[in-house]
């Protein structure tokens, strides 16, 4: 059965919800079924955001089951980690940006942010399939740091066998980013594809 279940994790303001919409809308554009389940709580910006994306056949509900995600697309390392134990499957892909967004709790000394190696090391005990790269730098290279989410979508497209065509994804990126940012976003998508 052709079906992919993902979880896009990040911090409010990083564009993780838009990234999940691009993937799901591309699936619909390719004639597939799609579901997105998301939680964005009280925090407008800076809070944890997790978006469940399910595309393909036999999907009804908007949520992933326990350890049922084929991949976690992690726009911020600790947000990926926050969801890994509950959702990532034992042979799933953990694809993470390496750039961190330090929480307020850590900034004021009430918690500690673990070193990146500890994060990827811990995820490595769930799955062997851990990939990381500096998506934020590539977004800057593409022309706008805010395209980091699209860099990550591009990387996912080359790292995972999505049931969506690359051309459709690219077209959906074009149609779902703010006016005047189409070229930088397509650039970001391509840089992401080459990064992993």
């Amino acid at each position: 059965m052709s079906r992919i279940r993902l979880l896009v994790a990040g911090v409010g303001g990083q564009g993780s919800i838009r990234a999940s919409h691009i993937i799901a809308r591309a699936a619909v554009n390719d004639g597939l079924k799609a579901r997105v389940g998301e939680t964005y709580g009280a925090a407008m910006r800076g809070g944890p955001v997790a978006s469940h994306v399910k595309i393909g056949e036999g999907i009804y509900s908007p949520l992933n089951s326990r350890n049922g995600a084929d991949a976690i697309l992690s726009l911020e390392p600790m947000e990926g980690l926050r969801n890994a134990a509950e959702y990532l499957s034992g042979d799933g892909l953990f694809l993470t940006n390496t750039e961190t967004w330090i929480p307020y709790d850590v900034n004021i000394g009430r918690a500690e942010y673990p070193p990146l190696e500890e994060i990827t090391g811990a995820v490595g005990r769930i799955t062997e399939n851990v990939m990381k790269f500096d998506a934020t730098s590539l977004a800057k290279k593409a022309g706008d740091i805010r395209t980091m989410n699209v860099v990550m979508v591009g990387a996912l497209d080359s790292a995972l066998n999505l049931p969506v065509r690359t051309e459709t994804l690219k077209k959906t990126v074009r149609e779902n980013v703010p006016e005047g940012t189409v070229d930088v976003n397509v650039n970001a998508f391509e840089l992401g594809r080459k990064a992993v």
Binding site: G46, P48, G68, M78, A85, G90, D105, A111, A122
Partner: peptide, 24 residues
């Protein structure tokens, strides 16, 4: 049963820092 090992869960719980809801 596709659940991961309890010890891995505990290790991850120990690493994850809160990201509390605050005013903007």
């Amino acid at each position: 049963g596709g659940e991961i090992d309890e010890s891995v869960k505990r290790e991850i719980e120990g690493l994850v820092a809160p990201r509390s809801s605050t005013f903007c």
